[in-house]
């Protein structure tokens, strides 16, 4: 196994003077690997992603544990330094509609991060944005750059966001249910796109999802979360071969099987 891009140890987080959300979560994502983080809504899987990215909601705080990224401890780091370290990370968000600012053109939303992180000029950044849109197979990228988000379809918006996530060659990308808000045909294309880009760029991916079908297609290893605790952690082949924990088996039972008509859960 190669060197880990991200190592989380015993991570706990909770609402101030309220319930705990994460109980001692540990996982590691190797460089260039796709690690799935699976669980029901409210299991805390997105919260893990937000801990890693440093964008916890105001009332939630990390109460213990460690997050190591690029050789540095992120827990307890000052915000200013944290923002600098963040250059090595990116996010592919869940809802491509609300993840793009409705009042800014695509080009400015793609280039702002490049200008900040890479320190390049607006012209250079725009040229790079164009190349990235080519890479995510957007037709007529030149005109897409000039448009506003409401002028693009959901799939195109998600492609723009994926292109932006890869813009600064991050070591780690957190993908937070990137296909949930899309319809099924688009889901498949987007999933393949993420996998292809992840492979060609050699990026480590923490893939948050509730969909075990997606996990089977894209992930190397999986962590199954329930109520903020890890219930199972294994390579994909193993967990699909013989899920050990009853909760994992229940998740499998709840996954619609497209190859068995009538067997799907409604």
């Amino acid at each position: 196994m190669s060197e880990a891009a991200l190592t989380i140890k015993n991570l706990s987080a909770g609402i101030a003077r309220g319930p705990m959300l994460l109980h001692g979560v540990s996982l590691s994502v190797a460089a260039g690997e796709v690690h799935g983080l699976v669980g029901m809504s409210g299991a805390g899987k997105s919260m893990v992603g937000r801990c890693v990215l440093g964008i916890l909601p105001a009332k939630v705080a990390i109460t213990g544990g460690s997050i190591r990224f690029a050789g540095q401890e992120l827990v307890g780091m000052a915000e200013r330094q944290r923002r600098r370290i963040g250059a090595g990370m990116a996010l592919i968000p869940q809802d491509p509609l609300s993840a793009l600012n409705p009042s800014r053109r695509i080009v400015s939303q793609m280039t702002d991060v490049m200008r900040l992180r890479l320190g390049i000029s607006p012209t250079e950044a725009a040229a790079r944005a164009l190349a990235l849109l080519h890479e995510v197979h957007i037709r007529d990228p030149q005109s897409v750059l000039r448009r506003y988000p409401h002028e693009l379809s959901g799939g195109m918006r998600q492609r723009v966001l994926i292109a932006t996530a890869f813009a600064c060659e991050p070591k780690l990308i957190v993908a937070d249910e990137p296909t949930t808000a899309l319809d099924v045909t688009v889901q498949k294309q987007i999933l393949r796109l993420i996998r292809d880009l992840q492979r060609s760029h050699g990026t480590a991916l923490l893939f948050v999802t509730h969909d075990l079908g997606v996990v089977a297609k894209i992930c190397n290893s999986v962590t199954v979360l329930n109520a903020g605790r890890i219930v199972e952690q294994a390579p994909v082949a193993e967990i699909f071969g013989q899920p050990r924990h009853p909760y994992t088996r229940a998740l499998f039972a709840a996954t619609p099987r497209y190859d068995q008509p009538g067997g799907a859960v409604g």
């Binding site: 250059a87 996010l91 968000p93 600012n101 702002d112 991060v113 900040l116």
Partner: peptide, 24 residues
């Protein structure tokens, strides 16, 4: 999400408020 994404991109809270959220 766009405000969160802007913070992940590395912008400060002030920047996100003034340059992203204020107009909307």
């Amino acid at each position: 999400d766009y405000a969160l994404l802007s913070r992940v991109k590395g912008f400060s809270r002030w920047h996100v408020i003034v340059a992203e959220a204020l107009r909307n």
